[in-house]
C-alpha cells in the first residue's frame, strides 16, 4: 500500500535521512522506533509532504507522492497526527472535528460523522462545544486523532501519540488502534513506548541516525532485548 524507497531528506544543508526504505501493507500496524533524533518524525513528515527537500520515492497505492503537496497526499487517503498535539486551541472541539472534513468528499455527511466520532471518543462527546483549550493534554491528543480519523483515511500516521499522556488514556488509545486495524484502517506508528507499541505492531522498523538498521515482526523485536538495548534505550 505504502512503499518508501531510498528516501533521503534534508533540513537545509543537513542530510538527515539516508536511503530509508520501508513498506506498509493494507491492514497492518507498522511501528517505527529508534532513539531521539533518529529520524522518525522526519520520515513521516517526508511521507506526508512536509519536508522541503527530499529525494527517492514514496508511492501510495501505486501513485508517486514525492514532490506532490501535502494536501494532495491527504486526498489520496493519508492522514497525519503530528507530535505536539496540534489542535487549534481557539476553536471548539466540534470546529476542530469539522476541520478534519473541510476538504473531504465526506463532508456532506458531517453531522453523521461527528456523531460517529463522538461515539468512538466519549470524552470528546461531552465537550463538543467547549473551546479545545479547556481540555487536558490527553483529551487534546484524542481530539487530534479523532480529527485525523473523521475523514476515513486509508493510512493514519501518528507521531508519538502517547507522549506525556496519563496511562488510562494511553490504554484507551492502544485499544483504539487495534479496533481501527480490525476495521481495516492501516497505521504507521512512531512510539517511544516501545513495549506497548511492539505489542500491537505487525512489523517494526528500527531507525538510527537517519537509516533503517533493523526490520522484524513486532513479536520478534519485542523478544529481542539486544536490539532494543542498542537502538532504543535513551
Amino acid at each position: 500500500m505504502l512503499r518508501v524507497e531510498k528516501l533521503n531528506a534534508w533540513y537545509g544543508a543537513s542530510h538527515v535521512l539516508q536511503d530509508v526504505s520501508l513498506e506498509v501493507n493494507r491492514g497492518e500496524i507498522v511501528c517505527l522506533i529508534g532513539r531521539n533524533g533518529a529520524g522518525k518524525t522526519t520520515t513521516i513528515k517526508s511521507i506526508m509532504g512536509l519536508m522541503e527537500r527530499t529525494s527517492g520515492s514514496v508511492t501510495f497505492e501505486g501513485h508517486e507522492l514525492l514532490g506532490r503537496p501535502a494536501h494532495e497526499r491527504f486526498a489520496h487517503g493519508l492522514a497525519y497526527v503530528p507530535e505536539e498535539r496540534r489542535i487549534v486551541t481557539g476553536l471548539t472541539v466540534r470546529e476542530n472535528l469539522r476541520l478534519g472534513l473541510v476538504s473531504s468528499p465526506n463532508r456532506k455527511k458531517e453531522a453523521e460523522l461527528i456523531d460517529r466520532t463522538a461515539e468512538i471518543f466519549p470524552r470528546l462527546a461531552e465537550r463538543l462545544d467547549q473551546t479545545a483549550i479547556t481540555m487536558s493534554g490527553g483529551e487534546q491528543q484524542m481530539l487530534a486523532i479523532a480529527r485525523a480519523l473523521i475523514s476515513d483515511p486509508k493510512l493514519v500516521m501518528l507521531d508519538e501519540p502517547s507522549e506525556g499522556i496519563m496511562p488510562v488514556l494511553v490504554d484507551e488509545m492502544f485499544e483504539l488502534f487495534q479496533n481501527l486495524k480490525a476495521g481495516g484502517t492501516t497505521i504507521l506508528l512512531v512510539e517511544q513506548n516501545v513495549e506497548l507499541a511492539l505489542g500491537v505492531a505487525d512489523r517494526a522498523y528500527v531507525l538510527d541516525q537517519g537509516s533503517v538498521v533493523h526490520h522484524a515482526t513486532g513479536a520478534a523485536l519485542l523478544a529481542d532485548a539486544e536490539i532494543q538495548e542498542r537502538y532504543c534505550s535513551v
Binding site: M48, P69, A70, P82, V102, S104, R107
Partner: peptide, 23 residues
Amino acid sequence: RYGLIIRAGARDAQIVRVLGVNI
C-alpha cells in the same frame, strides 16, 4: 467552511495543509 479554514489556518497553516487544504 472557508471561514473555518481561515480561522484555523491563521493559527496553524501546516495542520490545515495536512487536512487537505491547498493553503
